[in-house]
Write a protein that binds this DNA or RNA. Structure first.
Lengths: 222, 222
DNA sequence: GTATTTCTTTGCGTATGCATTAAATAATCA
DNA sequence: TGATTATTTAATGCATACGCAAAGAAATAC
């Protein structure tokens, strides 16, 4: 009922994003504007607008006469992204701790942690990844800095496509949830220093694992 | 000679940015696409593309049928931006220290610091601001994370317009350059921990001064 | 056989026009 | 009079058209 028809440019953004994440538009591939327009059954205009937006979000690149290139991610890129996430999320954790949220306001965090436990128990990696996303998104939201929220969302997006690949290459992230609990408790206790530090370590650890994994499998691009 | 004619969209981006920074397009003001198109003597198409780009950079906002709104910055916005800058720049400082640059590679930092000294000596605030920009830009570049570079650039842009106002409201930033020297020395000495900490304090201090200033002058929007 | 020039193709940047739809205004009714 | 609905207005979203410039193909010269 509240369904606005949704503009073509918006649809183009959504659908292109989806196709990039699903791999239908593979990393490194080039596509002409007219090709994408045909694909989405619309004219070049809204496609161009969508492409411009997605370019500013780092998902693709416009190269005149070469086509729109879906940006591949090198291990170095992953490192960069994880470093940004580390800094901004741990800042958010610190801030969240300072706010002094009551238990109720932190229930989404608890829920996400519980869901991760459950997912790990039944070895459902997709469910785990989804809950993990939720935890990090909520953490950043609790931090209360809207710019941090949107930057982190952008960076997470970039990593998302790669995770589809890497998620199944590594053992169950059983240890990871202890980190999440630590962060949660520090926030609940209002211990900003600890929240910051815990989350920082958590992200640095995750980065190390990932970089290691990419090296081991000799993955140069995702 | 290497002057490519520069596309209209690119020109639109540059000129709109310039007009926003100069105040010709004032914060909080609304402008129709067609109005901007007339202003720049081009059609709506490239203007729309430019506006889309600038929107993604947080300088303005498209509100269908209300016009393009140049985003004003509240003190809370400034706080958010400074926090992001604090985190990412101090990360860059840490990384720069870890790289182990030789004195030659750090000469731009030294130059910027010297220029700030000179500017302060002759009370040239514009020159000081320009050199300060240079210092921070170079610092972040030395950090070696391209994403940090572009995010910091975006955030600095948002602050730039406000600085035109605030710069002249406060006393000469004589103390600030000692901070810069501390950061520089830590990087030169390869002391990552110190570099990070120094720069963090520097930015937090700057934020405090600014927020204070805005409160004192009861500036709700810039 | 290679290098250089000319020709052809084609993708993009921009302008333009039209349909849509949100806002503003007028009109109608309780 | 105040509220509600119809009407008008006009800015946007999108499609389309066109010219330019770049990449590639063909042709010519060497």
């Amino acid at each position: 009922m509240t369904d606005r028809p949704l503009s073509s440019s918006q649809r183009a953004i959504n659908e292109l994003r989806a196709k990039i994440f699903s791999g239908e538009l593979a990393a490194g591939s080039d596509h002409l504007e007219s090709e994408l327009a045909d694909l989405l059954a619309m004219s070049r205009t809204p496609v161009r607008e969508a492409v411009l937006t997605l370019e500013s979000q780092g998902l693709l690149e416009m190269r005149p006469r070469k086509g729109v290139r879906i940006l591949p991610l090198s291990p170095e890129d992953m490192g960069e992204i994880y470093d940004v996430l580390t800094e901004l999320e741990s800042h958010a954790a610190e801030r969240a701790a300072l706010v002094g949220y009551d238990a109720g306001s932190l229930s989404m965090l608890v829920k996400a942690i519980d869901d991760m436990d459950t997912a790990i128990a039944v070895s459902d990696l997709d469910a785990w990844a989804e809950a993990d996303d939720r935890f990090h998104t909520e953490l950043v939201r609790l931090g209360g800095n809207s710019r941090v929220v949107s930057i982190v969302n952008m960076m997470s997006d970039q990593v998302r496509r790669a995770r589809t690949t890497t998620l199944f290459m590594r053992p169950l992230p059983t240890k990871s949830n202890q980190d999440h609990r630590d962060v949660y408790q520090a926030i609940r206790d209002g211990d900003a220093k600890a929240a910051r530090k815990s989350h920082r370590l958590h992200r640095q650890h995750a980065k190390a694992i990932l970089v290691d994994l990419l090296a081991k499998h000799r993955l140069r691009f995702l």
